[in-house]
């Protein structure tokens, strides 16, 4: 038995606030092209991808960009545990009369009628609607979030000094253990760092 110093949560390189500070790695496109593509869809489009592929992170980055552009975005979040009702969504929209774009995370978790009402309401009022969802079909796909080991390595390069980045073999193992879900890989690395010997 050995006494181990645990890293403070605030100092953990995989703490949420550190992850949020890392740049988003777009694949095969640029921010300029992505924003142009969204504009061509009247900002009514979907970001699709599997669990832990970076959809929410991308939506958060889009929020910052739209805000900086003066586009008054508002956000809403739905998941299996908290499926949003139409009443809640309408309240979000009416509480922010200046809003131009609704960024909805987890649109696939809305009920069919709620989705239909939201789509019609925002369309009639020319409100942008950018959603994340696991599968295509709800709105035209503007971006498909995909993960690979290179993306994971690039994220780690932002978070760790070079000598602390796990080697490719152990990263690949971790990546496959978590079914290519980068969010889960980063959570596991958080725990590893939290208990590492100082």
């Amino acid at each position: 038995m050995t006494l181990v110093s645990a890293m403070k949560a605030r100092d953990n390189p995989f703490a949420i606030h550190r992850l949020q500070q890392t740049p988003y790695h777009l694949a095969d496109t640029t921010w300029c092209d992505l924003l142009d593509k969204l504009e061509s869809f009247n900002n009514r489009a979907a970001v699709i991808g599997q669990h832990g592929s970076g959809k929410t992170t991308l939506l958060n980055k889009l929020y910052s960009r739209f805000k900086a552009m003066g586009r008054c975005p508002v956000t809403a979040f739905a998941n299996e545990d908290t499926p949003l009702t139409w009443r809640q969504l309408k309240q979000t929209l009416t509480a922010n009369p200046d809003r131009q774009i609704l960024l909805l995370d987890g649109a696939c978790h809305l009920g069919r009628l709620t989705w239909y009402r939201l789509k019609r309401y925002t369309h009639k009022r020319q409100i942008g609607l950018i959603i994340t969802t696991h599968n295509p079909g709800l709105l035209p796909t503007a971006y498909h979030c995909r993960t690979d080991i290179t993306l994971l390595q690039n994220i780690l390069k932002e978070l760790l000094p070079p000598h602390e980045i796990p080697n490719e073999t152990s990263l690949e193992k971790l990546y496959q253990q978590h079914n290519q879900n980068i969010r889960e890989v980063l959570r596991t690395l958080y725990d590893q760092w939290a208990y590492q010997k100082k």
């Binding site: 038995m1 110093s5 645990a6």
Partner: peptide
Amino acid sequence: ITINTSSATV
């Protein structure tokens, strides 16, 4: 206030 030590085998 810190809780920064734990017993563990390393």
